[in-house]
Structures are given as structure tokens and as C-alpha cells.
Design a protein around this nucleic acid. Sequence first.
DNA 1: ACCTGAACACCGTTCAAGT
DNA 2: ACCTGAACACCGTTCAAGT
Lengths: 225, 225
Amino acid sequence: MGKKIHTLPARDGALSRQRIIDASIALLDQGGEGGLTFRALSEQLATGPGAIYWHIANKGELLSAACDTIIAHMLNTPLPCVTPQDTLRAVALGMFDTIDAHPWVGAALTRTPGGLPMVRIFERIGQQVRALRVPEDKQWETASALLSYILGVSGQNAANAQIAQARSLDRFEVLGSVSATWSSLDEDAFPFTRSVAGQLQDHDDRVDFLAGINLLLKGIENTCQ
Amino acid sequence: MGKKIHTLPARDGALSRQRIIDASIALLDQGGEGGLTFRALSEQLATGPGAIYWHIANKGELLSAACDTIIAHMLNTPLPCVTPQDTLRAVALGMFDTIDAHPWVGAALTRTPGGLPMVRIFERIGQQVRALRVPEDKQWETASALLSYILGVSGQNAANAQIAQARSLDRFEVLGSVSATWSSLDEDAFPFTRSVAGQLQDHDDRVDFLAGINLLLKGIENTCQ
DNA sequence: ACCTGAACACCGTTCAAGT
DNA sequence: ACCTGAACACCGTTCAAGT
């Protein structure tokens, strides 16, 4: 019987926290949030589900650690930016592109509010807020506003990608179905939404995202000087 | 045997979509996202799990419908505001307070990207963006930015409330544990976060939220005029 | 110390069978 | 048409038993 042909190769070394996290990232990238399962993970690692619990406390910690690996990697790539504004735009776009590449990160970030991944981003933003010479008593709320906006867009993108994957559609098809829904809305109750329904199909999420960052930067500039 | 004493009363009428949604909201308010279960719901409604599927397609639709009920109710309360800015602030704070009262709504909103609940909010915001005389080709990105920011804060608040409930702590205790984590961060790697760690304990989420809205409004004012 | 894998207590969802 | 409830295919997590 060739039963062993489709079996994964036996593990060539000891299990480790990092090895588990790397395998988790691979599963998440491949199958989205639902792709990470202790059973799939233990199969990938050629072990039993119980073995993973020797290295990791629970699924929440696993997701958070996977998320942190991605975020830390992104923040490590240096940005040759001159002004604090440029740097903030670059950090924000880095987040956008990272979550575009790993949609599950958007959801994972929200899941652990005070966790290390979010602190990393908050720190980066905060340093630039300082560099913008925002008064000390407004630095907290300013950095928080930027972070919230970035997380808001991230969450929506992550959700979009997730339903697209769940229904195995591409981005264009999802937008098409939303556009159809919007066009059939009641004219009197939804005048604005209907008027912009045409822009839905050919808008650029990344451009819109940056426009929001620029609004915040303009607001900071005019409020804090 | 008094076995029937703790049994729920028999259903006094037919099942209906609205009755199911109302029961779902009650479960969600009481037990958070994890509180809504087809088994708990069918027990509450004195029926079997299968009966619910006659009226609702799946759990996603149920969550979305529950969310829409809350959002629609909030948007129905009239706002006696003079300027578009005032109205935008009022709508935003309405969202904030609603999600403060029903944290699960924050997560549910993100779950269904193009859904009716989000369209309702988008419409409200968009109408005020128009009233602000934002040029037509910038209305989409402006309304989107406001919506993303609101959703970002909502998502974080929802997550905070959820972990607080899961660990059965109050808000103050959660902030305390986060504050302790922040204070133990490496001084060199996290100078900003450490410097604002003191503000964490006594800050007001609602005030910070409004500060972000005001930054965006200032940005809109200075960009579009 | 580290791993195994069966077992437990849950899920959402389906569906033949009832009324 | 509407409801019932057992059954299915999953989960995350635990834990006695192995090495």
C-alpha cells in the first residue's frame, strides 16, 4: 500500500516556539483566519495537537505571536524619510501593504488590544508625533487618532479579503456585488451612497487610505501650531 | 420531581425573524460575542436549533441583523444640531456610546463589510460631508476616512470590552494590567510609549475619540476650502 | 523535559421525520 | 409551511501515558 506517499515528511528536529509560529503564519497566509487550526498545524508539524501546548499557551497567544512576527518584520525595514510627515505616511502605508499581503493580521491586531504588536506601531507613530512638535499634553490623543484610523482601515481590508476568500471571489467581484446592492438602495433614504456607488468600482483603497492620513496630518498641523 | 421548575416557559406564539433577532441581541448583550449560540438561542426561544434555520440563513446573517437593529435604532434618534460639524460629532459620539453599550456591535460591523449597518452610517456621514461643501470628487474619500476612524475606535473598544468580560475584570483593572506591561517595556526601544504610560490610567476614551474627529474636521476644513 | 493521541466539551449546520 | 431533535463534521483544550 502506498499509503505513506501522501504523508508529510517526519519532523527533522525538535519542535520550538518559533517553528510553530512560522508554520502558523504559513497556514494563515494560505487559508486566512480559518486556516489556522491546531489539527492542521500539528499535521504540518508532524506531531499531535497536544505537543503544541507545551510551547504555546493557547490559540490567542499563537495568533498574537504570529501577528507580532509580521509587524516586527515590517517595522524593521528602514525608511529613508526626511520629514516626520513623510515618515508617518510611510509607516501607515507599510501597515496598509502588510495587511494587504496578510489580511489575517488586520483581525489579529484588533484581537489583543494592549498587546506587543499594537505597542510597536503605537511607539513608531508616537515618535513621529513628537517630532512634529505636538504639545506634550496632546501627544497621546494625536498618536491614538492616527493608530485608530490605521486600524480601522486595516480591519475593513482584512474583512473584505476574508469574505472574498470565503466565497472564493476576487476583489473586483466583491466590489461588483456591493455596487449592485448599493445601486438598488432606496433613492430617498440613501442619496449619498447611491451618488457615489459609481466610484466604488474604480476607486483605489490605497489612495483613499493615504487621503485620510493626509487629512489627519493637516488637522494636526492646524490644531497644534 | 420538580425538574420542570427551572425550565423556560413554553413559547407562547410562533417563531419569527424579529423574535429571533431580539433574543439574539439579549444574548449578545449578556454574554458578548461568545454568548450567541444556536443552542443557547434555541433554549431561550423554547425550540430546537433547526427551527431557527427556517427563518435565518446562518449565524453571519443573524449577527448582521442584530447589529443592524441596534444601528438603525441609534440613527433614528433625531439630532438637533446646527452645523454639519456638530452633526458629524453627534453621529460619531452616537456610535461611540452605542458600541460602549453593546460592545459586540463593534466586531459585528467589521464582519460584514458592504452590509446594511455600515451603509447606514456611511450615508449619514456622507450627507454631512456634502453639507460641509467638500468638492464632489473628494466626498468619497472624506466620508470613508471618517467612517474608517470611527470603525477603528469602535473595534478597539469592542476588543477591550470583550477581553475584560472574558477575564471578568472591569475597565480599570484591564487598563492597570496594560499600564504595568507598558512600564516594563525597554526604555530605549519604547521611549514614547513609556512616557505616556502614566496617561493611560486616567485618560477618557470618549474625549480622545472626539479629539480625533476634530482633527479630521480641521483637516477637511483646511484641505477643501 | 518533551511528545503522543485519544477523549472531552463544545461549536454551526443539516436533514429525515413529524405536525 | 413550520418545527423537532438527533446526527455530522468540525473546533480548542486536556491529560494520562509514553520516551
